[in-house]
């Protein structure tokens, strides 16, 4: 009886939270399936005949598949590079108490993006680096590592710190080397953290807007920048705008729903708890 009443209160909160946080997103998605008359109707209409016209237009009028691919290339490679650099660094910082280095990496997360963007822009135009797709992608991927790597380091430090030193100590007594401790003990025990880092870093990179705004050209432009250009065109094409923003949101939604299971499973499977 007690717990049942408890649940009713919780479910009322569930409903309020779901409405507040999901409402605007559902409104965006539903608007993307409306035709021009329904989308500009006031008061707003909730029931309408859905149309795919807005989506078809995007792919017909713009090379939208290319923009989607660009976003995948930039977010994917900057996540991989960020993990390769960030995870070993986080382990060493956590185990050797290299707090000054932690601060150095934090500098990357603290500095405002425009601060790097101006020198990068001047240097890359000065060296005539732009114009070639390979160098353009590379510079965008490297730029996005400034987003991913520090995020990964900071998330992984706390996960590595939560791996009990006792386990490592017994392994050292058994003759395990430092790299062995990292690869065989701390890393496997921090897999949930690795998953969280990977997912968040991919999403942050996918979403990141500023660097590509100034560094991307027409053929390397990711979804975020082309979508912003749609707003800039000042078109009254609400349907097209909402379809574009739905497409931008889609992979991140799928990824998080998938990673949510992984994340919860990983976090509940504790290491030394017993």
């Amino acid at each position: 009886m007690q717990s049942k009443r408890h649940y009713i209160g919780a479910y009322v909160q569930y409903a309020i939270l779901a409405f507040a946080f999901l409402g605007p997103v559902l409104w965006m998605v539903s608007s993307s399936f409306k035709n021009n008359v329904d989308i500009t109707a006031y008061p707003p209409v909730f029931l309408f005949k859905p149309t795919l016209k807005n989506y078809l237009n995007l792919f017909r009028v713009y090379p939208f598949a290319k923009y989607i691919l660009n976003s995948f290339i930039i977010a994917g490679f900057s996540t991989i590079l960020g993990l390769l650099m960030g995870v070993p660094a986080a382990y060493a910082i956590a185990r050797f108490r290299l707090n000054s280095l932690a601060f150095l990496t934090l500098l990357a997360r603290m500095a405002p993006g425009v601060l790097f963007l101006i020198p990068w822009y001047i240097i890359s135009t000065g060296l005539h680096l732009s114009g070639n797709d390979f160098t353009d992608y590379s510079s965008l991927i490297l730029a996005h590592c400034v987003v991913t790597m520090p995020l990964i380091v900071w998330l992984m430090i706390s996960y590595f710190e939560s791996v009990p030193i006792d386990i490592e100590e017994s392994a050292v007594i058994d003759g395990c080397s430092r790299l062995g401790l990292f690869f065989r003990i701390s890393l496997p025990l921090s897999l949930p953290g690795l998953a969280v880092s990977m997912v968040l870093s991919f999403i942050f990179s996918w979403n990141y807007f500023l660097f590509a705004l100034a560094l991307a050209n027409n053929s390397t432009m990711p979804l975020t920048v082309i979508a912003f250009n749609f707003i800039g065109e000042g078109s009254a094409d609400w349907g097209g705008l909402m379809a574009a923003s739905t497409i931008i949101s889609l992979p991140a939604l799928i990824l998080t729903i998938f990673a949510q299971k992984l994340l919860i499973k990983g976090l509940t499977t504790g290491a030394v708890k017993g």
């Binding site: 779901a18 997103v25 979508a227 707003i231 909402m242 574009a244 949101s249 998080t256 949510q260």
Partner: peptide, 21 residues
Amino acid sequence: QAVILIPSIIASVAIGMMWIQ
């Protein structure tokens, strides 16, 4: 948890566009 996380994981460009509307 998955549902309320959605605003944080969507690109700010999409956030901007949906709230402009």
